[in-house]
Simulated assay, not measured.
Amino acid sequence: MSSVVSDEIPAAPLVSDSRTMRRAVADLSRGLRTSELWLHLGWQDIKQRYRRSVLGPLWITIATGVTAVAMGLLYGELFGMDIKFFLPYVALGFIFWSFISSSILEGSAVFSANEGLIKQLPAPVSVHVYRVVWRQLIIFAHNIVIIAIIFVIFPPPLNWTVLLVVPAIGLFVLNAIWVSIVFGILSTRFRDIGQLLSTVVQLVFFMTPIIWSTQSLTSATGEESSRLKIVELNPMFHYLEISRGPLLGESVQFYHWAIVIGCTVVGWVLAMFVMRNYRARVAYWV
């Protein structure tokens, strides 16, 4: 029997492109283009949270305002601070910290909290990230009322530098997106991460100058103490400086901006790595 030699060349194995940077960027882009969806979902989250409430979302403003005023008066008296400076200082710190902490905690649960929607709705993963960030922006917008009221009572020495709060908020949004991507995907796979973040965020709150001022760490001669240098190792300190400083009429040194921008770049590099490798697995992990 003559042997038959096949001239066919074996086909190359198909390589899936689900774990490519192109697919990760496409997910972020398509999610951004479906803004009508995540804008609606984010607003519905706020309405659902305060359903059948008389004041509705105003409870956000009331709760934040009462806490900020109470803490400002209490710690201002304890530290012997001028209330005209310290109350706006604490109030702004609470408002911006609320955005930061909520972005971390709610961002870590963004996918596990939307399990049903993820399995039923064929939408980009980034839609749920944009949704939670949009929700935090709505809450932040409600808290602007507190800033307006305090500035009417205690008008700060504002100048053109107040405009720097706009790029500061833009950096907050960029950081909220990458934080939600990284911690959201990792917490979906390892559920203990969400519990760990709750503890860490609470600890960082007391380590960040929100209810206390860095002025209390400065010596009587005006020299910076070693404790102040330790505070500067906390990235959250720099985030508050670039956002709170301009609204208080203070000049913000450039190194605060450089550190925040650096953290943003590093965070986005990490987010793209996570999106590239684990984005397709989210639907199976939830």
Rank of each mutant, 00 (worst) to 15 (best):
A283M: 04
I169H: 07
G194T: 11
L197P: 03
A176N: 04
T221L: 06
P122G: 06
P57T: 06
V66R: 07
N114D: 13
L174K: 07
A109Y: 02
V4A: 07
M81H: 12
I46R: 06
M81F: 02
A11F: 08
V286R: 11
K119V: 09
V54S: 10
I100G: 02
R131F: 05
P155E: 08
I261W: 08
S35R: 15
Y130W: 13
A280G: 01
A271V: 07
R281P: 02
S101M: 07
A176C: 05
L14D: 11
D82V: 08
A109S: 15
P167C: 09
L74G: 04
E223F: 01
A220P: 00
I146N: 13
I177Q: 07
V4M: 08
I147D: 01
P88T: 01
R22L: 10
W268M: 04
R281I: 01
G170M: 10
R23F: 03
S18R: 14
L28S: 01
L270G: 03
N234H: 03
V110S: 13
A12M: 11
A283H: 09
F94P: 00
V66G: 02
Q215S: 12
I149R: 10
G170T: 05
I242N: 07
V252Q: 08
L39R: 08
G262K: 11
H40G: 02
R23E: 12
I138N: 01
V152Y: 14
Y130A: 04
R281C: 00
K84S: 15
I149Q: 08
G31T: 05
H238G: 09
F99T: 01
A26V: 10
H142Y: 15
A220I: 14
S98C: 01
T20D: 00
T214D: 11
H40W: 14
